[in-house]
Design a protein around this nucleic acid. Structure first.
Lengths: 203, 203, 203, 203
DNA sequence: AGATAATCGAGACGGTACGTCGGGTCTTACG
DNA sequence: CGTAAGACCCGACGTACCGTCTCGATTATCT
């Protein structure tokens, strides 16, 4: 996750593998209790039972650490097989909304995105660890829908990006900016819009 | 803009009106140069030629100040009248994308949203100053499309919220998270998706 | 004591005069309890009820602070008038030894002298605040002895320096290096040596 | 030099003899370049081409290491035979002053003395390694002067201590505290004072 | 020859203090 | 009163060394 493995050292005491996990868990815990802006690396180190230096040896700063801590949250996402494209979308969107409802995701995610607007390395890390990694969901959903005959067997790669931006963007905006719950009612309306568009439905 | 006006005092030296504008301008300038996280209120005060005391008398902190400074940026948005709903949407989305391309909006907006996940007053301030204020664009667009007969004359108010989340969310996600430009090609594809849905078009 | 008075500011909150005294007292207290090497500026600030920044605004570091704190200790030295040069010397040497027996002087003094071997500004500060200031004792003692006719009325200024180095050096060496008490017996033997020399007496 | 020799083990890899010398040399080198307070054991180890572990296996810490490194410097002192007590004293004092003029002695010596005021074991080590070892010079000088008939053949042992404190103290104070060179002129004046006293000479 | 054991280099580890920076508050003199 | 200036307390920053530890690799002596 962190760009380590420095050409495989031979000598010296090896880095503690347990420390990595403890630090990431402590980071999420601190995010829940304190939120991004009040989270301090000293506190995270203490919670993890680790010295500050150990933390800094592995991560360059708060941003990098939180990206890694948050990215893991999204790995539990799975696109369900409910028999229809609409039902599949509704399922995954609800999962996504559930993660965004958790406090460790809410403030952490937006904050690192904010920071990434001025930090190219951070943006790349976010893209690699979170965005690109989750596009698998769109791909799998489309493949399945094509197998069912719900979508034509074409495959413009930019369409995947577009759909990902629309779905993820809508849920994030609903949840964090409008600050309204992305509940089942909303998800159904959103899925309908996504499938048939403004013109197709009653609007 | 700032919820002040302390019951209109009679005595004492009145507050400098120029200071407010100077501070907000200095804030945007500092956002461009430094970004959210490196912006300091002491620096803003210096740029504005104002004492820190003066700044704190008017705003409670960094978050409130930046919300006000950023909110003004979105007031220039106008939905154009290009003769069709599709063209109108494309126009306003491009305007929105242009604002989000400006550095003073990029990091400032996301950062205050991140903070708002743990600060109800701030969330309310964002909703009032930015979100609700710009929903006028969706309303106006729909009214115009209904007049043209492009949309049925129905008016579910939750649909406005949905569309706003989808449009704003997609552009923000494309621009800041995926970190790709919301250029004319992308806007056209997005508008088509919005109007006819995944199923209706080649998708 | 500290080279302040920066051209006499007009504006802004003035520096707290109480803070200076509190910090110097806290420094001596910490020297007694912890000694030079375990004394930390953060701890001194806490003891003085002052923020670390306040301390750093006034002193450049541990060395400068301790010089000022220790220098005050020697201001209480007075050369007594006991009727003869020998008795006067014995009196002042005993006073000096008593100060060097106090823990706040012991480790602090030697430590700053050690540091001063690599820091010209510090050496100058020590010379001004401590060495030159206490040479008054030698001058006064000589003047008095000349009035009594115990010493010829000549006045080679380098002799003052020589005597000061011999007296101060001997007491410091006896006390801190040999680590034996400079008690009355020793002081008497030393004074006899100083007055009549190795050859004159039994040696 | 270091109180080791752990009961003479039989088995296991023996300690490198070269390491000891390399470490002491590196210590003196670092003292010259950096001075006591900026000297770090990690740096000394690197200079000596040795791991930190190796260094700590032999010395308990910075103080002990520096005492050993500095003590060796004084072993080169020899009291010359110039035909008279005065000339002998002048000779050895000049040698002593020359050593104190070297940077590896200056800051190292004073610093460990400062530390020794709070560390009995260290004080004892200094006394053994440096102070008592060099008293041989006073003893030899006196013996020789007595043989010449310059001093009475008495031998109060406390007089040796007194003279050692006076001579060493004066040179150290002149050199390090007053920060003036102990040159030939000064040494001559000091020797005269030591031999005939304040009263005997012009003062 | 093989087992045993202390050494060596390297470098990660838990700590403590550093000196700096920014946040907000307060205290001046001036308008 | 408002204001500019700047000192104040506080808490976090990221770094540097401390002295300890855990590695794999040597290098001895003792079976």
């Amino acid at each position: 996750m962190q760009s380590r493995t420095p050409a495989s050292r031979a000598t010296g005491r090896p880095r503690s593998a347990a420390a990595d996990a403890a630090i990431l868990a402590a980071t999420r815990e601190a995010l829940v209790e304190l939120g991004w802006s009040k989270l301090t690396l000293g506190d995270v180190a203490t919670r993890a039972g680790v010295a500050k230096t150990t933390l800094y040896r592995r991560w360059a700063g708060k941003n990098e650490l939180v990206v890694d801590a948050v990215a893991e949250l999204f790995d539990e996402l799975e696109i369900p097989n409910r028999g229809s494209l609409a039902a599949d979308i509704e399922g995954v969107v609800l999962q996504f909304a559930a993660i965004l409802a958790r406090p460790e995701a809410r403030s952490g995610l937006m904050a690192v995105i904010a920071e990434s607007t001025r930090d190219d390395a951070l943006r790349e890390r976010i893209r690699t660890s979170i965005v690109e990694r989750q596009k698998r969901l769109v791909l799998e959903g489309r493949t399945r829908a094509q197998a069912r005959g719900e979508l034509p067997p074409e495959s413009d790669p930019t369409t995947v990006d577009l759909i990902f931006d629309v779905v993820a963007g809508a849920v994030v905006h609903r949840t964090l900016v409008s600050a309204e719950p992305a509940d089942e009612r909303w998800v159904r309306a959103f899925t309908r819009l996504l499938l048939v568009g403004l013109g197709g439905a009653a609007g």
